[in-house]
């Protein structure tokens, strides 16, 4: 019933996270109704993705050579924040509270899934640390057993004089209600409590 060309497009849309068959159909038909111009604009936008690569320095998305963050004059080039995915960099940038550099691992360790240290961007991390400019390494892997193990592994590999290794604090979300926080989060918040005065 649906022409094969449209069906092929629907199948591609349906592969996106959070998009089911129905939404994929709506997107495809909407594009069809928008005429040749809209389809062309989309085609060009998709084609331009081939210019995007990973920054050889940090592993974030870049268009040519190094990414915008690495090539910017960042305020604090002594802080290096390690994350799992490029999307995490965007999340930290949105906080506007971090002015250091990033390093994207490309995932977390999971021997069960065959993700061993050589599958992550660790060699380039060690090389950056070897240059000696970094004084604080902030490990911001995902708050999970796998993320924690990845941080522990890295911490064990990079211990060196003059390098302060830290990790993210954990607690209850801002604006959240305590009664709706899950037990694990509350427990971590309790364990990580701090004095009201001072730090």
């Amino acid at each position: 019933m649906i022409p094969a060309a449209v069906e092929a497009l629907i199948a591609q849309f349906a592969r996106f996270p959070g998009v089911g068959r129905r939404s994929a159909e709506r997107m495809a038909f909407d594009l069809l109704a928008g005429g040749a111009d809209r389809a062309d604009t989309l085609r060009l936008a998709v084609e331009r993705l081939s210019d995007v690569s990973l920054c050889p320095e940090c592993g974030f998305f870049a268009e040519q050579g190094r990414c915008l963050i690495c090539s910017q004059g960042r305020q604090d080039r002594h802080q290096l924040l390690v994350v799992e995915r490029p999307m995490d960099v965007i999340a930290f940038e949105k906080t506007a509270g971090f002015r250091g550099l990033y390093h994207v691992l490309g995932g977390h360790l999971s021997p069960l899934k065959g993700i061993t240290p050589d599958k992550l961007r660790l060699i380039s991390l060690y090389a950056r640390l070897d240059r000696g400019d970094i004084t604080e390494l902030i490990l911001a892997t995902s708050p999970s057993v796998e993320g924690d193990a990845t941080s522990l592994y890295i911490a064990g590999q990079v211990e060196r004089e003059g390098l302060n290794i830290t990790r993210l604090g954990r607690g209850v979300p801002m604006g959240g209600s305590l009664e709706f926080s899950d037990a694990g989060t509350l427990r971590l918040a309790l364990e990580g409590r701090r004095g009201l005065h001072g730090s």
Binding site: L109, P111, P117, V145, A149, T150, L152, Y153, G156
Partner: peptide
């Protein structure tokens, strides 16, 4: 490697 064991055993 031992380093990987260290990390997971710590968890």
């Amino acid at each position: 490697s031992a380093a990987q064991f260290d990390a997971w055993e710590a968890q």
